[in-house]
């Protein structure tokens, strides 16, 4: 069991946690946080793959590292945009949820509880 194994498993678990959170956490902010967790898991996956590609002199393949840095930038801007949307929604409509429909329609019945 080495670095790659431990953190590979860790990355996969973080991905699973993020997925569950994105689906099951009801508040939009929690979904945004869970998305960040999910993204972090995927980046760790890249990190593990980069670590596997280590050669003499370089501890980690630089290409996955570069991809992760690009990905982090994108994920952070996405988070900022999502939060700006959420705060604006809160200002216009009060407590914000994602699961209400266009205003002309009645609220759908809950499914499964």
């Amino acid at each position: 069991m080495g670095t790659v194994t431990v953190f590979g498993l860790c990355a996969a678990a973080v991905v699973g946690l993020g997925l569950y959170g994105v689906i099951a956490n009801p508040q939009p902010l929690r979904k945004i946080i869970a998305f960040n967790l999910l993204g972090s898991g995927v980046f760790l996956l890249f990190g593990v793959i980069g670590r596997r590609g280590a050669v003499a002199g370089i501890g980690s393949d630089p290409v996955p590292q570069a991809l992760v840095i690009t990905g982090v930038v994108v994920a952070f801007s996405a988070t900022a945009l999502a939060i700006a949307l959420l705060l604006r929604l809160f200002d216009t409509a009060g407590p914000a949820t994602l699961d209400s429909d266009a205003p002309t329609r009645p609220r759908p019945d809950r499914f499964g509880g």
Binding site: P28, K31, F35, V42, G71, R88
Partner: peptide, 28 residues
């Protein structure tokens, strides 16, 4: 800027982001 369009945009953004993360996972 109406509340329903903001909600639609947020929903779109979040779901699309999850979609891209899936894509990114496959790429990795």
């Amino acid at each position: 800027g109406r509340a329903d369009t903001l909600r639609a945009a947020l929903r779109y953004l979040l779901f699309a982001l999850v979609g891209s993360v899936f894509y990114l996972m496959g790429t990795a």
